[in-house]
């Protein structure tokens, strides 16, 4: 038994420098998740502001309709399908790096979810805050910038942290279009050793370490934010 595990470990990790697959996979997983969450945050904020402006002032009707559809489509279809459409249809005849395709696809996907998170944060703010800003002489844009946005984003920081954790796990679907991320790395190793047990369990542990670590951070942030409010 012990020998089997040792052999499996040796074949999967040491032999032929196979650990390099794991490292590359880990690197790509983190890079894609990081950039995607960044893109998602930017898109999310823009969409949330458009929708908030529409809901409070009745402006931006066309833009609002477009972003509502964007959110519906993204949230209503599987992320793997979106990834495939972007890779096989939109970037069909270009030699763009799959990692960049992954960043784009997951970023666009995350943007829709983040926009809903931020929107809920903005809606949770008492409308007196907006009125107080307006009454002091701020216009709508400045009230949003100095008063509403800082509170809205602060309220949803833990939820945004959870979105990042979700993204890290979702990047595994990138293996389907050949992105060399963690899941793909284990798949490649297994295809050489004909032994799936060790590579799969190993990367499962790596995902777990990352996500549990981040969950811990998010929980700490939640407690801190809660205390700051009381």
């Amino acid at each position: 038994m012990f020998k089997y595990i040792y052999n499996s470990f040796y074949d999967s990790v040491i032999y032929d420098d196979r650990y390099k697959f794991i490292l590359e996979g880990l690197f790509n997983t983190l890079i894609i998740a990081l950039f995607a969450v960044f893109i998602g945050f930017i898109i999310g904020i823009i969409i949330a502001i458009i929708r908030h402006n529409h809901d409070t002032n009745g402006k931006l009707k066309v833009l609002n309709r477009i972003v509502v559809w964007y959110v519906n489509i993204v949230r209503g279809t599987p992320v793997l399908l979106q990834l495939m459409i972007i890779y096989y249809v939109i970037f069909k005849s270009s030699d763009i790096s799959v990692v960049i395709v992954g960043i784009l696809a997951f970023g666009l996907n995350s943007g829709a979810y983040v926009s809903e998170i931020i929107r809920s944060g903005l809606n949770a703010i008492d409308k007196g805050q907006m009125e107080a800003g307006l009454a002091l002489g701020f216009n709508y844009a400045k009230t949003m910038r100095y008063i509403i946005m800082p509170q809205g984003v602060r309220n949803v920081l833990p939820a945004l942290g959870n979105e990042f954790i979700t993204l890290i796990k979702e990047t595994s679907t990138g293996a389907y279009i050949g992105i060399m991320e963690l899941t793909k790395a284990s798949d490649i190793i297994a295809s050489r050793t004909y032994d799936y047990f060790f590579p799969l369990i190993m990367i499962a542990c790596i995902y777990l370490v990352i996500t549990l670590g981040l969950t811990n951070l998010v929980n700490k942030m939640e407690v801190k934010l809660f205390n700051a409010k009381c």
């Binding site: 008492d126 007196g128 805050q129 009125e131 107080a132 800003g133 307006l134 009454a135 002091l136 002489g137 701020f138 216009n139 100095y146 008063i147 800082p150 509170q151 602060r154 409010k229």
Partner: peptide, 30 residues
């Protein structure tokens, strides 16, 4: 309107202080 409101202060029933700012920041922001 924003310019007019600078000269027309309002005090609300629910105070509406900005919760994310200190007292000093509440006073000096505008």
């Amino acid at each position: 309107l924003p310019l007019v409101r600078e000269k027309m202060g309002m005090v609300f029933q629910q105070f509406n202080l900005f919760d994310h700012l200190t007292v000093m920041e509440n006073l000096t922001l505008a």
